[in-house]
């Protein structure tokens, strides 16, 4: 098998701009699935709206392209109704954390066995480069001509606080790491979050003078450090990469099975 066996080739070349990080995320994701050898019929990819969401149409799994911000709510219905499915939810930063922020924290709180891939390009690309909740301070965007004054979320800290049982971060530069972390996230039982910093050269890069896609990838290389690395120890202000949370908390669908047992017992007692 090659990654081509996992895509719907007739829709390529895809709609993303030249050098878009989302294509690299797709690339890493396909390799992760290929290496895990999961039956294609067992995977549902559920996305919302935005550049990131288009990933669902390109992959040869069951694909559910939904409405803006709500993919995790659809995913919850899919997973709870058919727990043997593997549910993957690729999201953009606006999709996941602005309009979809509530669903994100509640999916994490429930620890439902869904994998959320947050492709963080710090901008709304599909609509033309407006600032997002991940843009952070002093960023130029088409709705922030005088630079942003809003703080950004720290996705990792938010996911941790909300109760996700697997939380990781990587970038589109660190592709081998991305494949490894995606595999771990997908295999993890419980709500897994993987943030992948993903360049948007067209809007974020151009408006903020970050150069082309290659320059943006160089920045990911320079400005991030792997947890436990010497580089990070010497420069603790770098953006951390790696696994931040990995624990075995009770998973929602498994806990629900216990509810069914309890309910059946209670019903049986009533019959007596």
């Amino acid at each position: 098998m090659s990654v081509k066996d996992y895509i719907r080739e007739r829709f390529f070349p895809h709609i993303w701009c030249p050098g878009c990080g989302h294509g690299i995320v797709l690339n890493s994701f396909l390799r992760a699935v290929e290496q895990l050898k999961i039956n294609k019929n067992k995977i549902v990819i559920t996305s919302g709206i935005g550049c990131s969401a288009r990933i669902s149409g390109y992959v040869d799994f069951h694909s559910l392209h939904t409405i803006h911000g709500r993919a995790l709510a659809f995913a919850t219905g899919l997973k709870l109704s058919k727990p043997k499915l593997k549910i993957i939810v690729p999201m953009g930063d606006g999709d996941a954390l602005a309009i979809g922020g509530n669903h994100f924290i509640h999916a994490a709180r429930r620890n439902i066995d869904v994998t959320a891939i947050i492709m963080n390009n710090r901008i709304y690309g599909m609509t033309g480069g407006q600032y997002s909740p991940l843009s952070g301070l002093n960023i130029k965007a088409s709705t922030a001509p005088f630079l942003t004054i809003e703080n950004d979320f720290n996705i990792v800290e938010l996911a941790k606080a909300a109760g996700a049982s697997f939380v990781a971060r990587t970038t589109t530069y660190h592709v081998l790491e991305a494949v490894t972390l995606l595999k771990k996230a997908i295999k993890h039982k419980g709500f897994s979050v993987i943030e992948i910093l993903s360049q948007c050269p067209t809007y974020f890069g151009r408006k903020n003078k970050k150069g082309d896609a290659c320059s943006m990838l160089e920045l990911y290389k320079k400005n991030t450090g792997k947890i436990g690395s010497k580089k990070l120890n010497n420069n603790p202000d770098l953006i951390k990469r790696g696994i931040f949370v990995n624990n075995n908390k009770p998973e929602y669908c498994e806990e629900y099975e216990k509810i069914i047992q309890k309910a059946a017992t209670a019903a049986a007692i009533r019959q007596i």
């Binding site: 090659s2 390529f12 070349p13 030249p18 294509g23 797709l26 690339n27 592709v175 990838l217």
Partner: peptide, 13 residues
């Protein structure tokens, strides 16, 4: 294979 892995367009093998 970094060219293959980093290609956003799945254009290199």
């Amino acid at each position: 294979k970094f060219c293959e892995l980093r290609c956003p367009d799945l254009a290199i093998e």
